[in-house]
Structure formats: structure tokens, C-alpha cells
Design a protein around this nucleic acid. Structure first.
Length: 577
RNA sequence: GCGCCCGUAGCUCAGCUGGAUAGAGCACGAGACUUCUAAUCUUGAGGCCGCAGGUUCGACUCCUGCCGGGCGCGCCA
């Protein structure tokens, strides 16, 4: 049980006691009552809004109610003082031994400190990356990949059962384009003359090995053959090669999905038919025409066509959406909706991580999931904004036409996995972000990646040196030697479990990064006090007992940093380069 | 025209799902330090939280309407 849960229980007991005493009516709804650290540390260690929330329901006023609750809490051994403040807050100042015990709890729990069962084992499917299998991962995919992966870890840490899933879009027109592009490289491999890649096909060099491999497999039999003979095998081979490359790229970031689902297989298994039948049974499918798109110029031509439509407007969409094209094949949406239906059968909740450029299609897929599951499966789409790549403040030039984009592999090679992952989590997902190659590797306190890593490395450094610098340290630490300033670090560290829970329920992994920045800053500040006053150093040669206690404190801070970085998928630095 | 996201210190951004006097870094002002505990430290100033209403004990946070910026809006994927 976390410290916060414990005090919530204390508060409940105090309220129960007031009911028994006849001071408080029985059966008052306690929803909304919280025990939290106050924003302003001068207000104490913990504060509760109980009196303000319950006063009206109990037919009294906040300060009067606080006057009843306060003394009950003050009577606890763990509480040094309970003060009523402001409109009716009850501020608690905890006994120092509470923080000393929490320090021990951090070290005892180790890598599990902060792990919780708040998620109750709920099965959550997180779908992320799902980049089209037409080329290597580039930086456009990177942020969604990191955010999705960190979110999955965060949810796991908070007690959910998580499936990490990748949807392979191997059924649309762009994989045919891929197959044709591979065919050109195939001919190139056989003839040895540089292929000319026409506009609209994929020009990237990464298809050369695919062409060579196809040449080795098939010889020259498809050089002049009609497309209908080679399109399917070339497509399969090319997609497989692209997926292998994408998996390799993802592995560079430490990302490994549990499930790869193929759009082609979803279609081949008849899933879209089943989904449409299910919707039709609810009266949500009809034959109709789409309105003329608003984005068209007035003089552009528009021919209305009768299509199979899903009544997504009944679930908040702006217009009904086609599930089939006029040629009878499935639209992307038709298959995607069936795919989400499939995911919903093996999970209690669904989360998709999408790039912001797909924002316009959120409503239709949410409508489809709501319709197919009768609203029983919570479904979130998290939109991740684009990343602008900079180098020393100057935008990095990229040209999609020439296939000259910055690949994820290039970036990881240049700055490292940990820097990429941490940096991608230093903004909330829906805020735009700059990624400056120069700044993310800067060794200064302006760079949160560095500052957090440095804190951990410093702790490791002092642990390595401790025995050599301070002789005769006692076996057991006497934590009562720690002063109030030092215990404040533990107060901050003790917030980790609730940060994890809040971040998980808000589905915002960036909160972990910001919290670690706070922890690092607080640690560095404490450490820096040793510059002015040698007695405040962590390692004090003539005070083995004090050193021992401070090492315990440092170890706890290091543990928090490691646990937080672990959720983010970032390795903690043992030393700075 | 419609939809989504954003609007917080000069700049870049947090703000713990509605709490108390809205925070941090950079930049700016003033001090300190000259270092093998290094990749600085302390401190100060800086705000109509885009605007206007509403909800309530209480709003940066929730609702409505405006203003400003970005993105998106055929049967593409």
C-alpha cells in the first residue's frame, strides 16, 4: 500500500469515527475526497479537501467540519500536526519517521516501487507504429513509436495486461506500388543498368536488395512478363522484406510488438463481411451517395456514386462513411473497422496511437467501435503531433520525392536510443515538438535527458567511491541522522507511485519524464550544497555513520530514477561519457 | 463551410483530471565559485493563464460563444 492509500484509509477511519460519535450523518457520499501532497510545500506534507467536499452533503460548513476531522488525524502517531487552512483544507505535517520508513520501502521494493495493481489486470490493446510496409522507418514514425511503447510499459507498470500490436497495411494500393517499384529493381539487378524510377513509385535504394533477392529467386522469367503474373509474389516478398527492415529499425529503439496483424489476412478471413453484417443487423448499413466534398473547388467535377455506407453520423461523425469502394473492394476504413472489432474480442480496452495527419478519421473509427461493441469497449485514439527536425536551430531539409528522408536508424545511430526515447517524451503527445540534434546531446542542465542521466551517474559514482573515501561505515544505516532537507528528497521520491498512477490513467507517459526532471533537479541541488559546505556532502570522510545514511538516501533516489527510466524504456547511465 | 489540436512569463514548455499566493529552464538583473563533489551555484524581477459569459464553496482546468495559429476534410492509406 502506498503512503497515499494509507492516509486515505486513515481519513476514512476518522470519518467513520465521527459517524459513530454522532458528529457526522451516516451514509454521506465520500466521492471526490482526496489526500494529496499540497502544491505549496509550506502547507505541509499532505492535505485533504475532505471538509470542503463533504460539508454541504453533511449539512455543515467546511471549517466546522475540518475542526472535527483535524483532531482525529492529529491523534495518529504518523501525524505531527494537522492544521486547518484556507477555505477548509486540512494540512498534515507528518512525523519524520514516516519518511524514513518510506525510504526503506523504496529500497525494499526496489524495481517494483511504484508498480501497482490500479489497472486490475484489465486487458488493454495498444496499437502503435503501424507504418506502411513500403520503406524503412523515418522520423515521422518515431514519436508515435516511442509514445506508444512507453504508454504500453506505463500501463503494464500500473497493473494492466497489455498487448502491443502493429497493424500491417499490406492490402492497399501502396503495396502494389511497392511491388512495381521492386520489379524495377529486379530488372536492374538482372541487367545491371541503373533503373529509372518514375514519379509515383518508391525511389529508395532500400529496394535494391529486394530486387536482387527476387532476381536470385526467379531468374529472368518476370522481366517482360505482364504485371498480373508477378504482382502477387513480388508484393509478398517486398512486404516481407519491408517488415523485416521495420522490425530491425524498431529493435534499435528497443521496441518489440507482441502481435503483427495483417490487413490482407483480416480481409482474407472475411472479417470485414462479418463486421458489416453485424452493423447491418443493427440497421447501420445502407446504400447511398456521399455529399460533394467541401474541399473541392467549385468548378471541379463531382459524380455522385452509390456506395455501401456506415451510419457513423449516429455516433457523432460528420458524414456517413463508405466501407466498400464502387468496384466492390473494401475501403481502408471497411477493413480497419473489422480489424478493431477483432481486437475488441481479445481486449477490454483499445488504444490507438496515430499521427496527427490522421486526425480526420478518428470519429469514424470511434463510431465503428462504439457500434460494433455496443459501447462496451472503451477506445481511445491518441494523436501524436509531428516532430520538426533541427540541427543547431536550422530545419533539416528533407525531400520525399527523392526518397531522401531522415531515417530512424540514422537518428538512433547519431544520438543513441536513450536520447531519442527520452526526448520524444519531453512533450505531451498532442503538442508539437522540435528535435534538435545539437541540443538533445548537449551536456548541460538545460537538457533534461542529460540532467536526469547525470543524476543517476552521480549516484553510481558516489556508490563506487564510498568505501575508498569513507572508512568504517556501519552495517546498518541510522536514518535519523538525515535532516529535514534530506527528507524532502524522500518526500519527492515517495510521489512516484501516484505519478505513475496518474500518468497511466491519463495515458500520458510524458509525465514520468517531467517528474524525473524534478527528482534530478532536487537531487543535484542537494548535492551542490556540498560545494559550499563540506559537511553536507554525501561522502564525509570523518562521519561514516552519516555517510552511510546519506548513501541510503542516494540509493533510494537512484532507484526512483531507474524505475522511471525503465517505464520510458531508457537505460540509466552508470557514468557520463 | 465543417471538424480536430493548440493559445500559460520576452522565448521553450509544465501544471498531478476542480484546490490555497499559477511553476521550471532559457534569456535579463545582482551576487558567489576558479572546482579533480566537473559538465556551475545562490538570488531577484518578470503573468488579464487569448477574450467574454456560465457552472460552484473554489476554474488555467469543465460548458457555451467569439478571436488568433496549426492540421485535416472524396471510394487515398
Amino acid at each position: 500500500m502506498t503512503l497515499y492509500a494509507r492516509f486515505a484509509a486513515h481519513l476514512d477511519a476518522a470519518l467513520d469515527a465521527l459517524v459513530l460519535d454522532g458528529e457526522l450523518p451516516a451514509g454521506v457520499d465520500r466521492a471526490g475526497v482526496a489526500v494529496e501532497p499540497p502544491r505549496d510545500a509550506s502547507h505541509g506534507d499532505l492535505a485533504t479537501n475532505a471538509a470542503m467536499v463533504l460539508a454541504k452533503r453533511a449539512g455543515t460548513n467546511p471549517r466546522a467540519l475540518a475542526g472535527l476531522i483535524g483532531p482525529k488525524l492529529e491523534a495518529l502517531a504518523e501525524v505531527q500536526a494537522a492544521e486547518i487552512a484556507g477555505p477548509g483544507f486540512i494540512n498534515l505535517r507528518l512525523a519524520p519517521h514516516v519518511w524514513r520508513e518510506e525510504l526503506g520501502a523504496i529500497l525494499t521494493a526496489g524495481s517494483d516501487y511504484g508498480r501497482s495493481r490500479a489497472g486490475h489486470g484489465v486487458r488493454v490493446n495498444v496499437e502503435y507504429v503501424s507504418a506502411n510496409p513500403t520503406g524503412p522507418m523515418h522520423m515521422g514514425h518515431c514519436r508515435g513509436a516511442v509514445v506508444g511503447d512507453a504508454l504500453a510499459s506505463l500501463l503494464e507498470y500500473a497493473g494492466h495486461q497489455v498487448t502491443r500490436e502493429y497493424y500491417v497495411n499490406d492490402a492497399g494500393g501502396q503495396v502494389d506500388v511497392l511491388a512495381r517499384s521492386a520489379h524495377l529493381r529486379y530488372v536492374e539487378a538482372l541487367t545491371g543498368t541503373e533503373a529509372v524510377i518514375p514519379e509515383g513509385l518508391y525511389p529508395g535504394e532500400y529496394l535494391k536488395p529486394v530486387g536482387a533477392s527476387l532476381a536470385a529467386d526467379y531468374g529472368d522469367r518476370f522481366v517482360d512478363a505482364p504485371e498480373s503474373e508477378w504482382l502477387v509474389p513480388f508484393r509478398q516478398a517486398a512486404v516481407a522484406a519491408m517488415m523485416a527492415m521495420i522490425r530491425t529499425d524498431l529493435a534499435l529503439l528497443g521496441i518489440h510488438h507482441d502481435v503483427f496483424s495483417s490487413e490482407a489476412e483480416v480481409q482474407a478471413a472475411g472479417k470485414p463481411d462479418a463486421a458489416v453484417a453485424a452493423l447491418a443487423a443493427k440497421g447501420l448499413i445502407y446504400e447511398g451517395e456521399l455529399e460533394r466534398p467541401k474541399s473541392l473547388d467549385p468548378h471541379d467535377e463531382w459524380e455522385p456514386v452509390t456506395l455501401t455506407l456506415f451510419k457513423s453520423t449516429q455516433f457523432g461523425d460528420d458524414q456517413d462513411r463508405p466501407v466498400k469502394k464502387s468496384d466492390g473492394s473494401w475501403t481502408y476504413f471497411g477493413a480497419d473497422m473489422a480489424y478493431h472489432y477483432q481486437k475488441a474480442q481479445a481486449a477490454d480496452q483499445l488504444i490507438d496511437i496515430w499521427g496527427a495527419d490522421h486526425a480526420g478519421t478518428v470519429k469514424r473509427i470511434k463510431a465503428a467501435v462504439a457500434a460494433l461493441t455496443d459501447g462496451a469497449t472503451p477506445f481511445d485514439v491518441k494523436l501524436v503531433q509531428m516532430v520538426q527536425l533541427l540541427r543547431g536551430g536550422e530545419p533539416v531539409k528533407m525531400s520525399k520525392r527523392s526518397g531522401n528522408f531522415v531515417t530512424l536508424a540514422d537518428v538512433v545511430e547519431e544520438v543513441g536510443k536513450d536520447v531519442v526515447r527520452f526526448t520524444m517524451l519531453t512533450r505531451k503527445a498532442e503538442a508539437q515538438m522540435d528535435f534538435d540534434f545539437a541540443k538533445v546531446v548537449e551536456a548541460s542542465k538545460d537538457n533534461p535527458v542529460f540532467y536526469v542521466q547525470y543524476a543517476h551517474a552521480r549516484i553510481r559514482s558516489m556508490q563506487r567511491k564510498a568505501a575508498a573515501e569513507v572508512a568504517d561505515m556501519p552495517e546498518r544505516a541510522d536514518l535519523s541522522l538525515l535532516d529535514a532537507e534530506e527528507l524532502e528528497l524522500i518526500q519527492l521520491a515517495a510521489q512516484f507511485p501516484r505519478i505513475v498512477e496518474a500518468a497511466a490513467s491519463a495515458r500520458e507517459p510524458h509525465r514520468i519524464a517531467f517528474y524525473l526532471g524534478d527528482v534530478a533537479a532536487a537531487f543535484h541541488a542537494q548535492y551542490n550544497k556540498g560545494n559550499d559546505d563540506p559537511e553536507k556532502r554525501f561522502l564525509v570522510a570523518h562521519r561514516p555513520d552519516l555517510t552511510r545514511a546519506r548513501l541510503e538516501l542516494a540509493a533510494a533516489i537512484g532507484q526512483i530514477v531507474r524505475n522511471g527510466l525503465g517505464i520510458m524504456g531508457v537505460a540509466a547511465a552508470e557514468e557520463m561519457a
